[in-house]
């Protein structure tokens, strides 16, 4: 999120409770900022599984197929050599490189697609201007409600968050026009 309402909580339990309560009140574009992974936060936010695995799968298949094809082309088609009487199309000998090419293609694709999906690297975000937000990397647990959340009506949401035990509530990004 780039704009929205941020709320600071002292403990992960309080934050999880607040997320559950906010979701039951109809907020859908929630986010959490915590110094370490919190058990149950994915489920509380209603996050699904990352699509990364399915995106990487075709790259893995392509890497394996490409690796095998290159070996077949070089060793069996373009420049066949007799190595101790073994067949030019030596499938068992092709397997290790095929496997390694699959690993390489999936690892690179996984890394690049992950950067794309998470919009990293992000050197600066309007959220960082909120005073005290840096403690999200130290000892505080923050909830964000995205400005695009249709349920977000700022004064009501601010009251909701304060009632749920937020230490501070602050707006990040440009104020809503």
């Amino acid at each position: 999120m780039k704009r929205g309402l941020l709320a600071e909580f002292e403990t992960p339990e309080a934050m999880l409770l607040a997320i559950a309560e906010l979701r039951s009140r109809g907020y859908r574009r929630l986010d959490a900022f915590t110094p370490y992974p919190i058990h149950g936060v994915d489920a509380a936010l209603g996050l699904g599984r990352s699509p990364l695995t399915w995106i990487v799968l075709p790259f893995a298949i392509a890497g394996a197929a490409g690796g095998y094809l290159v070996q077949w082309h070089n060793n069996a088609y373009a420049y066949p050599l007799n190595v101790g009487g073994r067949p030019a199309h030596a499938a068992p000998a092709f397997v290790p490189i095929t496997f390694e090419m699959m690993v390489l293609a999936s690892a690179l694709a996984g890394f690049v697609v992950m950067l794309f999906l998470t919009r990293l690297p992000e050197l600066w975000s309007p959220l960082f201007d909120v005073p005290g937000f840096e403690r999200a990397t130290i000892d505080r647990f923050w909830i964000g409600i995205d400005a695009r959340d249709p349920a977000l009506i700022r004064p009501l949401a601010e009251r909701d968050l304060t009632d749920l035990g937020a230490l501070t509530v602050a707006w990040a990004g440009e104020a809503r026009s």
């Binding site: 101790g84 073994r86 068992p92 000998a93 397997v95 290790p96």
Partner: peptide, 12 residues
Amino acid sequence: AFFQFMLIWIAN
């Protein structure tokens, strides 16, 4: 299983 097979196959 595979590497046992491959090494034996390749050494022949």
